[in-house]
Design a protein around this nucleic acid. Structure first.
Lengths: 222, 222
DNA sequence: AATGCTAGATTATATTACAATCTTAATCAA
DNA sequence: TTGATTAAGATTGTAATATAATCTAGCATT
């Protein structure tokens, strides 16, 4: 519990979006949210403005707010942006790997990745990948880049797609992760960046293929 | 004029921040803004929430909003992030330079840059640099990267510092711009990215030096 | 002198009631 | 079928009011 209603509502809506309970394109009606959270309009309107500012919601004057949706174009752009950000993070991580106990952290992370990523529980697989990225952010040592990377990563992790990856795709992804980690451990920033970018291009390809498959099977995901 | 009061107030405050009329650390009191813009509390609070979400304002529950300030650590991180983003944009631009009439646009931009950037009117110099980046974003053809780059660029353009650059620094900057443009025109993405990163590292250095100078001359910029 | 405390002023937070405006979709007429 | 009208739903904005958190100044204690 935060100290104000607005903060609570911001957190609640943000969580619902990140966890996929609010689908892309879904409209957020002030009156409904007001009833749902049992508060007056003011706090709800403020929360919506905040989340629109953060980029979670689309806001059109006189029409209202809706969860930002994205089609093929947006997915391509999200992955391209992640190439820029996470590629750079990998580079920074490689350059910092000799400091502190970063090498030990990364080795431990690699161990966990190889043990858990092929888990049959999809949530575990997603979770462990997230942990890997978090470790990288820490080693890179740039809070702002971390914030930016997270801001532009969420919409892809969520959504049905992330849970659809087949065994072979995850296996390929794991192999790519190991390559990246090796480059970071070797302190080879240029290679780490190249591999991370390549990895994300491959994942983008896989993601788009999954979109197509689901699209054709009649699912409507705005 | 936008279509709603809130949009107007958002724009007004954002402009005041970008133009340096609101200093870092300055508090934004709802009642005062309400009187200043002659509106009730609601729209003001919404505008503040929005700008906090965009990162222009710092917001602490029960205490209120203030213009986000940043010290050396933040400046380093902002420039590092821009290295990642704008370096990537430069790479994309180089890869796309042969499409459409991008080559002509870039050449025109280069002409304007060389004619105007050394203008004695500082605003012109800043403006023309902004235009260059905008052209790059267009050629790169990724709206999301553009959005991200702009989101994390504003706090540096604004502020007194940008207006303090000496003639030699601007001259150096111009030279770097020309190098980058040449690489883009040559379709050499790898080099364009390297040069852009190098450019931003140099600008970061200059910016930090300016901060020191102003700091010692007694100015307090939170 | 430094610290701690209290009272009052300021500011933020939130509700309620009301009115105006805009959008959208349904309805009705040409 | 098209186009105008209308009605409902939603957003936008004001104003008055009340409560809660925070800050500040002044006073007292150590």
């Amino acid at each position: 519990m935060s100290s104000t209603l607005v903060e609570n509502i911001i957190q609640a809506i943000r969580d619902e979006i990140r966890n996929g309970y609010l689908v892309a394109g879904q409209r957020l009606v002030v009156a409904e949210l007001s009833k749902k959270y049992d508060v007056s309009f003011g706090p709800v309107r403020e929360a919506i403005r905040r989340l629109a500012g953060e980029g979670y919601l689309e806001f059109v004057p006189h029409k209202g707010a809706s969860v930002k949706g994205f089609g093929e174009k947006e997915v391509r752009e999200y992955f391209a942006l992640r190439e820029a950000l996470e590629g750079y993070v990998a580079k920074l991580a490689a350059e910092n790997i000799h400091r502190s106990d970063y090498r030990e952290q990364m080795l431990a992370m690699q161990k966990v990745l190889n043990e858990q990523m092929l888990s049959s529980v999809i949530e575990t697989s997603i979770e462990v990948r997230q942990q890997f990225h978090d470790v990288m952010y820490v080693i890179a040592g740039n809070d702002l880049v971390k914030e930016a990377a997270q801001r532009y990563t969420f919409p892809l992790q969520r959504s049905a797609f992330s849970r659809q990856a087949g065994k072979e795709r995850i296996k390929a992804s794991l192999h790519e992760h190991n390559e990246i980690i090796d480059a970071i451990l070797a302190g080879n920033g240029v290679q780490a960046e190249r591999l991370m970018r390549s990895h994300l291009r491959n994942r983008a390809q896989a993601y788009l293929e999954m979109m197509d498959e689901l699209q054709q099977s009649g699912d409507n995901v705005a």
